[in-house]
Write a protein that binds this DNA or RNA. Structure first.
Lengths: 201, 201
DNA sequence: AGCATAAACTGAGCGGTGTTCAATAAAAAT
DNA sequence: ATTTTTATTGAACACCGCTCAGTTTATGCT
């Protein structure tokens, strides 16, 4: 066929990302395919490649959306948080990863060829989430140590991430760890305490 | 052709694992293929599948070998270690991962289908490495807290792992972190200090 | 209205993948 | 010498990412 124009270019892009997001959530990164996305929206493979340069490109768009949803989820749960906002952040991280297994893992399963840098757009979508973390960590640090916030936020993110990965990929099951979330929170508390943070517990 | 018997079954298995290991190191998980392994040892695809049930099976064998080499590397570097053995462990972790990027990442890139448990053989190969860690951590804990060692070892492994993943997958580059190894070591020291460990620094 | 241009969309085709299994060839046993 | 067992093959199947000549439709122009 030819021009159909049921959708504008932007709508089509969003349609693809949406269907891709759903497919990814259902089957996971390594069973994801452009052909299946096309089938689901009633277009042919070629159309996917007219809108996106490559599958890498599409994956970045889908993962970018996951990041936005993730940031939104965490922001919302922070709104009705108690005093211990840090504990809530850790819990949110685990919660999102666990209840969106495939989407969350795809973020880290997908990698660009060596040397290709992440596009700015994607970097910004990721930034939304890390900005929230940095803000919350800065808030619990004493004023004279606020400058530690960026580095500490990165490091604690990595700490929680490590526990979360091991929880989801079976490593912790192998090691008989039954409370990954608790362990992560304990490490975060120790690090914050060492930095002089004042946390309500 | 038919029976060639240049190799016994076991030799052939080791030949495949060896060539697979090399290929994996060269091209990484997502460009790894059974056909290429076969080509490199002068056999055809079918032979790979006579020796291994599936590619998952072969990947486990290869990753298992990586674990053994990793454990050996760490054990050797512990032999001529100074007083701060914990710092050396963290450094070794980063060092192995960085200088064996593809092999190390493949351990975590490869995942069995949901529900399929890791075979015992593989679990044991992994165990060698974690046993070393648990021993070293127990050694720096006061006697009356030695029982914390297993849980703490798991958690610190996850902590260092998280930092290492972010260092290798570009997340830390995105977040302007320039000393992942230093950050990981700082977190480990804080956690050990909180557990009452006595470390030579 | 008719026609030319531009845009959207297709899907067969290319070279790859994991996996299977009838056929085959050589060694071992009889 | 003949049968049996074993090791090995590679074409075939259904999938993959990706391309691009070709088709269809909408739009602009006279």
């Amino acid at each position: 066929m030819g021009r159909r124009s049921d959708h504008t270019r932007d709508e089509l892009e969003q349609l693809i990302i949406g269907a891709g997001h759903t497919l990814l959530a259902e089957v996971g990164y390594h069973r994801f395919s452009a052909r299946e996305v096309a089938k689901r929206i009633g277009y042919s493979v070629g159309t996917i490649y007219n809108v996106f340069d490559s599958l890498d490109d599409l994956m970045l768009a889908i993962n970018g959306r996951t990041f936005l949803i993730w940031a939104e989820t965490i922001a919302r749960s922070l709104q009705n948080a108690g005093l211990d906002r840090i504990a809530l952040l850790v819990a949110s991280y685990f919660d999102f990863a666990t209840s969106n297994r495939n989407l969350w893992m795809a973020i880290y399963d997908h990698r660009l060829p060596a040397g290709v840098p992440l596009p700015d757009r994607y970097a910004r979508q990721r930034g939304v989430l890390t900005d929230i973390l940095r803000g919350e960590i800065a808030a619990v640090l004493p004023e004279d140590r606020r400058d530690l916030a960026p580095a500490l936020a990165r490091s604690l993110l990595a700490t929680v991430h490590g526990h979360c990965v091991f929880a989801l990929n079976g490593t912790f099951a192998l090691l008989d760890e039954r409370d990954p979330h608790g362990a992560a929170l304990a490490r975060v508390r120790e690090a914050l305490a060492a930095a002089g943070a004042h946390i309500a517990v």
